[in-house]
Amino acid sequence: RPRTRITDDQLKILRAYFDINNSPSEEQIQEMAEKSGLSQKVIKHWFRNTLFKERQ
């Protein structure tokens, strides 16, 4: 599977949600997927990776 490139606009959407809640529900993930055009799997990975980076 090729690597997914996240655009600046998509990143703004993900960051806005992350700043509010770094552990989103399935409904929130689905909402982000619809708004951003990214798959739910990509969003879950982004949140997991970003949370890991923030904790270091």
Rank of each mutant, 00 (worst) to 15 (best):
R1H: 05
R1F: 03
P2Y: 13
P2E: 15
P2K: 15
R3P: 08
R3A: 08
R3S: 14
R3Q: 15
R3V: 11
T4Y: 14
T4W: 00
R5T: 15
R5I: 14
R5L: 15
R5V: 13
I6S: 04
T7L: 04
T7V: 05
T7H: 03
T7R: 10
T7G: 05
T7F: 03
D8Q: 14
D8T: 06
Q10R: 01
Q10F: 01
Q10S: 06
Q10V: 03
L11N: 11
L11R: 11
K12N: 12
K12E: 09
K12Y: 02
K12L: 12
K12A: 07
I13D: 03
I13R: 05
I13S: 05
L14R: 00
L14Y: 00
R15W: 07
R15T: 09
R15Y: 05
A16W: 04
Y17R: 08
Y17D: 06
Y17I: 06
Y17W: 03
F18C: 06
D19K: 14
D19N: 14
D19C: 09
I20P: 13
I20Y: 08
I20A: 14
N21V: 05
N21A: 11
N21W: 08
N21R: 05
N22W: 02
N22F: 01
N22R: 14
N22Q: 02
N22Y: 02
N22I: 15
S23T: 09
S23D: 07
P24N: 01
P24M: 01
P24Q: 02
S25Y: 02
E26R: 13
E26V: 10
E26D: 09
E27Y: 02
E27D: 06
E27R: 11
Q28P: 01
Q28V: 11
I29H: 03
I29D: 01
I29S: 02
Q30H: 09
Q30T: 11
Q30R: 10
Q30P: 07
Q30E: 06
Q30I: 15
E31H: 08
E31S: 09
E31V: 11
M32Q: 00
M32L: 04
A33C: 15
A33I: 13
E34Y: 02
E34Q: 12
E34D: 12
E34A: 12
E34R: 09
K35Y: 01
S36G: 04
S36Q: 03
S36A: 10
S36M: 05
G37A: 06
G37D: 09
G37Q: 10
L38F: 00
L38C: 08
L38T: 04
L38A: 10
S39A: 06
S39F: 03
S39L: 01
Q40F: 13
K41Y: 10
K41A: 07
K41N: 02
K41M: 07
K41E: 10
V42F: 12
V42N: 05
V42Q: 11
V42Y: 10
I43T: 05
I43G: 00
I43D: 00
K44V: 05
K44F: 11
K44N: 10
K44L: 05
K44C: 05
H45S: 12
H45G: 11
H45C: 06
H45Q: 12
H45L: 10
H45R: 14
H45F: 09
W46P: 01
W46I: 03
W46G: 01
F47M: 08
F47H: 07
F47Q: 03
F47T: 04
R48E: 06
T50H: 08
T50N: 12
L51K: 10
L51T: 09
L51N: 07
L51Y: 08
L51V: 13
F52G: 13
F52Y: 11
F52S: 09
K53G: 09
K53Y: 10
K53I: 15
K53E: 12
K53T: 10
K53M: 08
K53L: 14
E54R: 08
R55Y: 02
R55H: 15
R55P: 08
Q56C: 00
Q56G: 02
Q56I: 00
Q56K: 15
